[in-house]
Amino acid sequence: MKFSLAEASANAAETDYLIAGFVAVSAAVLAVVFGLMLFYVVRYRHNSPIDRGQIAERSFRFEVSWTAATLLIFFGLFIWGSIMYVRLYLPPSNALKIYVVAKQWMWKAEHAGGQREIDTLHVPVNKPVELVMTSQDVIHDFFVPAFRVKRDVLPGQYETLWFRADEVGTYHLFCSQLCGTGHAAMIGSVVVLSDPDYAKWLAQNGTSDTLAQDGKQLFIRYGCSGCHNDHGTVRAPSLVGLYGSPVPLSNGTTVTADDRYIRDSILQPRSRIVASYAPVMPSFQGVISEGDLLKLVAYIESLGSENPP
């Protein structure tokens, strides 16, 4: 039994301050509302002989200022909450990237070094960690109360979430979007390890191949290398140096080649064609699983970027 929640991430304490701010302002408003209500109903009960004096003045000025003052205070809290949210939305560029695939009813995590785990996520302390998440079936939600972070995990697209754990320990991981019968069983834990322990964990759970190396084999097996090779750019653009760089499209716009763009281009190649190329690539929708997609993305990422950050 406990009535407090661990603050185990960089933004946990600030989220708590924000919530405490709301509690304080709400308590003040409630004190005024309940206080006035109780005071009036006692003082002006029907059989009280107290002199009511003249009719209460309809002071619109009082009404407007009372409302405006409250709104202003809450507006301050709105701005504070929004700034924190924007920060939570944009992961730092040096974040350690871990891929998460959710399915009814388990969490699968794939580390860059090829380590895999189910319903557990090992992360190093004091390092920003970015999760790239997708679902194989329905909508799930990745929620770690101790980190004060939460994000829906949707099928058919990547959602990202980042945090920086700053306390070593084991914390609850909950699915917080109803996903069917096993929803309440879709819980796991996030294990925050010190740097040496994390290195040890990586070494013990390492496989022969990293995620990118697996991806390279898939790149050949699915036939991608037939066109996207390093030797010619006749039928398809080379993918070397693609990741993170701007891509001019045939419709005149430009997109950044991030995880989402690469995934979409594998599944729906005709939706965004690179300028000066013919739309000849077939769709791999339904052919490549979410797990293999992550490996391909990791491989393409490993081919480097022209504009390193």
Binding site: T15, F22, L30, G81, Q177
Partner: peptide, 30 residues
Amino acid sequence: ALGFIGLFTMGGLTGLFLAALAADVHLHDT
């Protein structure tokens, strides 16, 4: 009616917690 005033005010104020983005990230779906 008096009970309504109190409970509705509490419900409304806690709604403002949830309308604040970063607070909602923690409290949403709980």
